[in-house]
Simulated scan of single mutants.
Amino acid sequence: IVSTGKKNDTMSEDNFTVVVEFIILGFSDLPNMQGFLFGVFLVIYLCILIGNGLLIVITKIDPGLQTPMYFFLGNFSFLEICYTSVTFPRMLADLWTHKGTISFVTCAVQTCFLYILGAAECLLLAVMAYDRYVAICKPLLYPLIMNHKVCVQLVVVSWVIGVPVMIDETYRIFNLNFCGSKKLNHVFCDAPPLIELACEDTYEIEIYVHVAALIFVITPFLLILISYITIITTILRLPSTSGRYKAFSTCSSHLMVVGLFYGSGSIVYLQPKSRQSAGSIKVFALFYTTVTPMFNPLIYSLRNKDVIAALRKLLPK
């Protein structure tokens, strides 16, 4: 179908003048559950803030946790707090007020920060896997390779490397012509539901989103996979059973967090469009933005004797 230039110009003008806000449907299909869901998500958000906040504090003040592993863990916990704070306060406000309206600019800002922090989280998980690889596979060189300067540089790179790409991706998404319904069948502003509302060919932007996901999701995941294949191979060669158990225990927590985050995120962004449903996207989006940050402190504290000991020293005070 070929449209005239005049029609396109009119449509473009109409879209840019009309679309000043979106309506996030969220859980509007469960009107009687709004209060209950508000309570549940408020408790979850507080657990995320308190749990990850405690990890940040103990990794900063406990002398026994002044190692690269816990330096990265403290930064990861801070990142989790920032990541959930992009979506949770807004979602809680919508559940409390029963309004889902969000301005065009606010939606763009939320999407941009969500992607920047999501990319940083993927990269930081890869850095944490590399740290475990050096610690187990090159123990004699570990203090030299993972010195404080290198650790800081790796964290900074993880935070900033995705910024220009994600800003450009957000610009491309919100530069689309939106027409018709302004309702986002989602719990926050995100690419899949936004692209659904576009009234133009979205093939190029969908390819761009998938390429960005491959770079910042799959590539770090492959690096993590390679690191842990090497780690497991090295561990299996250790003569001592206790040594193997200790090595496995230090890696299992990180692997569990990786599995939770990458598994749900990949399903949302890398699943073929024909197989996606609004309900499944909501569930998995909530999963990687809620469950992973909530269980991160529990996974690391319950499976780590050093963290438990540090918490015991801190909490009585």
Rank of each mutant, 00 (worst) to 15 (best):
T17Q: 13
S85T: 13
R312H: 11
V291R: 01
V18W: 00
G26P: 01
G118W: 06
C47N: 06
A120I: 14
T230P: 00
L315C: 05
Y142W: 07
R172Q: 15
V258N: 04
Y130W: 00
F38T: 09
S28A: 10
Y203F: 08
L144T: 12
N75I: 09
R303V: 08
S85E: 07
G35E: 01
T87Q: 06
V127A: 08
P297L: 06
L315K: 06
P272T: 10
V217P: 02
Q110G: 09
G263P: 04
T106E: 15
L73W: 00
Y245T: 12
L125Y: 02
T202V: 05
G118K: 11
L117F: 14
S181H: 09
G100V: 07
P293K: 08
G39T: 08
S301W: 04
R275Y: 07
Q66E: 11
A310W: 02
F16W: 07
I173Y: 03
M146E: 04
L176H: 00
I226Y: 02
F221S: 14
G74L: 04
G5W: 00
V2N: 04
F178K: 07
A212D: 06
T67E: 08
T292S: 12
A213W: 01
Q271K: 08
I44M: 12
D94L: 07
L223W: 00
T219E: 12
H98R: 15
A213G: 14
F188M: 10
P316H: 05
T202R: 05
L141F: 02
D131Y: 00
K313G: 05
I267V: 15
V155D: 05
I61E: 14
A191C: 11
I173N: 06
K313F: 01
V40L: 15
I81V: 09
T97F: 03
P89R: 15
E21F: 01
V2F: 00
C179L: 08
V211L: 14
N177L: 10
D29N: 12
R312N: 10
F72N: 02
Y228N: 02
T67V: 11
T97N: 13
I229C: 07
I207S: 09
T10C: 09
L30W: 01
Y300R: 09
S28L: 03
N32I: 01
V109W: 03
Y83H: 09
L194I: 07
I102G: 09
A310N: 08
S240N: 10
S266T: 14
F16G: 04
L123R: 03
I56T: 13
V134P: 02
E196S: 15
P192S: 05
P192T: 03
G243I: 06
I207K: 13
P164A: 09
L65P: 00
L222N: 09
R90I: 10
L222Q: 10
L42A: 13
I1F: 00
K99Y: 03
V57W: 07
E121V: 10
N304K: 12
D14F: 06
T4W: 00
L49R: 02
D168S: 12
V155T: 13
T219I: 15
D168Q: 12
I161R: 01
P139I: 15
Y142E: 07
I232D: 01
